[in-house]
Design a binder for these strands. Sequence first.
DNA 1: TCAATTGCGTTATGCTATAACGTGTGGCAT
DNA 2: ATGCCACACGTTATAGCATAACGCAATTGA
Lengths: 134, 134
Amino acid sequence: MATQQLTRNQSLVLDALSHAEGPLSAYTILDKLRDHGFRAPLQVYRALDKLLEFGLIHRLESMNSFVACAHPDHHHHHDHGVTAFAICEDCGQVTEMHDTAMEERLSVLAGKQHFKTEKTTIEIRGHCQNCTAE
Amino acid sequence: MATQQLTRNQSLVLDALSHAEGPLSAYTILDKLRDHGFRAPLQVYRALDKLLEFGLIHRLESMNSFVACAHPDHHHHHDHGVTAFAICEDCGQVTEMHDTAMEERLSVLAGKQHFKTEKTTIEIRGHCQNCTAE
DNA sequence: TCAATTGCGTTATGCTATAACGTGTGGCAT
DNA sequence: ATGCCACACGTTATAGCATAACGCAATTGA
């Protein structure tokens, strides 16, 4: 199957996120899409839910906002394993990171507790290279 | 210096969290403390802010709620490094985990991006041992 | 004493997210 | 074709999470 066919609303929301500099909140997206007919939060949230399900976007728990996935080459919505995010508190830039050693370690940790992992959130707040060099 | 002296409000909030089965939201805490004179969200949030600052509680980003720190033996508020949380979606139980290998790995990842880490959030959602055994 | 700091209480407001209702459309088995 | 079902959509209302802004009281320290 090729890339998941998106509805109009889903495409609009994904576009908004893709063209944004950094993460956007649902309400910020709503404002950006008012010209395209969006009027209510649910229109955004429903699209976000689907895009999350398709693996096309990520939710940043620590800031209640959303970013487009950094891997536009995914033709089917499959798991990319655990993703860690580096979030700059100054400029808002988000860097997506994948690391199998880290996954392995998390798996061991969960295993010790006989814990069955469904979803893992890793978010590093701090300052990116650009913003550190003052 | 011995254990940080807490104000009345801070003590009440900490007690509420300490005696709770699982994580509590700010508004749940507010409800629990109405009998003790709490009337407004800010009374809770201000106490929570201080307790977080003292390292006596943790905030769970993925569920907008708070838990007492699992290390009651800390006599000064120092860093315990990175903490990972295993959160059971069934019973709500939260297990606090520390792992230096994990920290090391995250440090390497951040270093690769020349990212200066301020705070790291690791939250594993899933099912604990008890709730898995059906 | 005076200023600075800190905690507190209150009111109001803003931001984040979902419930519940109804409509329209397209697929599909009968 | 008819009827059914699933799904996306639009709308209104409401629930849940968090902070702004004001003023007061107590404490501390110069």
